[in-house]
């Protein structure tokens, strides 16, 4: 099994089950979307997969490897990459340095070596990976601009660059289209399609239905902690359940 597999995932807060036994496959080479109303548990699920939140039951495996007990940074090193609902980037570092941090921490290195200033044997590979990612996302022109001074849309791309520079096998995006204008959304959709075509497993949590229709191969509708409908985005959005949630849109 390539890609990300979630089995029987549970997370309770107090007496409330935020995620209530979710099975979800995020296959490599496709874009999978997770949709649903506020408070359905999408963000909680996302946090359980990345390890930012602990889970009360279930497993998360990536390309056959069990990630369930790992710390978030260890999951990142195992090939899981993610971005945040509110943009999180290294505002003081340049765009290139942002991507570089993503690339060079992929493997652990003795901290003392860094302290003593020993040369990093992987320096050249890191540099190449960074160059490639920036070019692919169209960020080469702003490579040396401090990331904190860029407009929102570009910041989203910088986050993506940091995630991709680590050469992940699965990519999780939490509302990547929020804060983007229409042109940027089209571009993002384009980028995600190409990434999936290259064999990456992509999971989106998103509210923007047009974006989902344009980019996702599969959609899962989550309500009150459970996945209630799965299938092609158009089919899922045509179900009565989805109609209740997204009444009056489009």
């Amino acid at each position: 099994m390539t890609g990300l597999a979630i089995r029987g995932l549970r997370r309770r807060f107090g007496g409330v089950a935020a995620v209530d036994g979710v099975d979800l496959d995020v296959p490599a080479g496709a874009v999978t979307a997770l949709i649903g109303p506020n408070g359905a548990g999408k963000t909680t699920l996302f946090h359980c997969v990345t390890g930012l939140d602990r889970l009360d039951g279930g497993t998360v495996t990536l390309a056959g490897r069990d990630l369930t007990g790992l710390a978030p940074h260890a999951r990142a090193r195992a090939g899981l990459a993610w971005t945040f609902q509110r943009i999180e980037l290294f505002a003081g570092l340049t765009v290139a340095e942002n991507a570089r941090v993503g690339a060079e921490n992929r493997r652990g290195r003795p901290l003392v070596a860094g302290l003593l200033g020993l040369p990093d044997p992987r320096r050249a590979t890191v540099g190449a990976a960074v160059g490639l990612v920036l070019e692919r996302l169209g960020l080469a022109a702003v490579a040396d601009v401090p990331a904190g001074t860029l407009p929102t849309g570009t910041m989203r791309l910088v986050e993506l660059a940091r995630a991709l520079a680590a050469e992940p096998t699965a990519l999780l995006l939490d509302e990547p289209a929020s804060g983007l204008d229409d042109r940027q959304i089209v571009r993002l959709a384009d980028v995600l399609r190409t990434l999936a075509a290259d064999g990456l497993a992509v999971l989106l949590v998103e509210h923007d239905l047009r974006f989902i229709r344009a980019v996702a191969d599969t959609a899962h509708l989550m309500i009150a902690g459970r996945v209630e409908a799965s299938g092609r985005p158009d089919d899922v959005l045509a179900t009565p359940l989805a109609h209740d949630v997204y009444a009056g849109e489009d």
């Binding site: 090193r77 990459a81 980037l89 290294f90 505002a91 570089r100 940091r162 995630a163």
Partner: peptide, 23 residues
């Protein structure tokens, strides 16, 4: 170097630093 970059990264955004694989 990488150590300094990792530290600035940590200061700017800890969640993002974790997502980049920094322990």
């Amino acid at each position: 170097g990488p150590l300094g970059r990792a530290l600035v990264a940590l200061r700017d955004s800890e969640p993002a630093a974790v997502s980049a694989g920094i322990d």
